[in-house]
Amino acid sequence: MPATNRSKLSSFDADRVRRAVQQTVSGPLYSFCEYDTESFRPLYIDDRTIALYDSSDEMLEHFERIHTHVHMDFMQIELFRNTLFPTAERVEYIATSMDVLKLLRVYVGDEALLLALAPDEPVEPIVAVIKETVGWPRNQNS
């Protein structure tokens, strides 16, 4: 059975966003998390992901290890906006595709969503439904 938690970090309705994303993905949604520079909260973890770990503690330790690196996303946003592409108003998302999965990080101001998807999952429809559900843009990266 998948694990779910209610959103506690996001100023927007991340639970509603998760439900919209789950209706949009064409393949598996392995995990859906909310995070900011300080905190990380898994909102959904599917059975396949849970089965990869010997215990929930091991899984949460791995997720925490991931968070120690994804918080650097917010520093990258500043690099892209202020240094590399100063005409850009915002960075909306970053996708990282690997042979085993695709990580999609979507930024909503000083908060973000981290989704683990199948490697061949198209990200544009997911980003579009997130934008629509959140009411985009809301002070994006300002």
Rank of each mutant, 00 (worst) to 15 (best):
Y44V: 01
M59P: 09
E124Y: 05
R90Q: 13
A128S: 13
A112N: 07
F80Y: 10
M98P: 00
D57E: 12
P86T: 13
T68E: 04
E111R: 15
F12V: 10
V123G: 04
F80W: 05
N5S: 14
M75H: 07
F12P: 06
L103N: 10
Y44H: 10
A118M: 08
V100E: 08
R138M: 05
D57T: 11
L113Y: 01
T87W: 00
L101I: 00
S10D: 02
M1L: 07
N139R: 14
P119F: 08
F63Y: 09
Y30T: 01
S10K: 03
S142L: 12
P42E: 06
E124Q: 13
R6H: 13
Y53M: 02
R41S: 11
T24R: 14
S31G: 12
S56G: 06
M75T: 08
Y107A: 02
A3W: 09
P125F: 01
Q23W: 03
L79F: 09
N139F: 08
V106S: 02
S55D: 06
K8C: 05
T24E: 11
F85R: 15
T83A: 15
R48K: 13
T83M: 14
Y44K: 05
D36T: 14
R90P: 00
R16D: 06
Y44R: 04
S97A: 09
Y107G: 01
E132W: 03
T37P: 05
R65S: 10
I45M: 12
Y35R: 01
P122M: 02
M72A: 15
L9G: 07
D47M: 08
T24K: 15
I94N: 09
M1G: 13
R18T: 01
S26T: 07
G27A: 14
V21N: 12
M72T: 14
R6V: 07
M98Q: 08
R41V: 04
P2H: 09
D110M: 11
P86W: 12
E124R: 14
R6K: 15
L52D: 06
V127A: 12
S11K: 11
E64S: 13
L79E: 04
P2A: 12
P137R: 10
S26W: 02
V106N: 01
L43K: 05
D36S: 15
N5Y: 12
F85A: 15
V108A: 00
K102D: 04
H71V: 15
L84K: 10
T24D: 05
H67Q: 04
V17R: 01
M1V: 02
F85I: 13
S10V: 05
S55H: 10
R18A: 05
C33A: 14
L9M: 06
A20M: 11
T83V: 15
H71P: 03
R16T: 08
Q76F: 09
T96F: 10
H71K: 15
N141G: 09
V123S: 07
E38N: 11
F85T: 12
D57C: 02
D13G: 05
D54P: 08
T37S: 10
V134D: 01
A88M: 14
R81A: 03
A128C: 04
L115D: 06
I77H: 05
L103F: 04
Q22I: 01
R138L: 06
N82I: 03
V70L: 00
T37Y: 04
H62L: 00
M72D: 14
D57M: 07
T133N: 01
I77K: 13
T87G: 00
L101R: 15
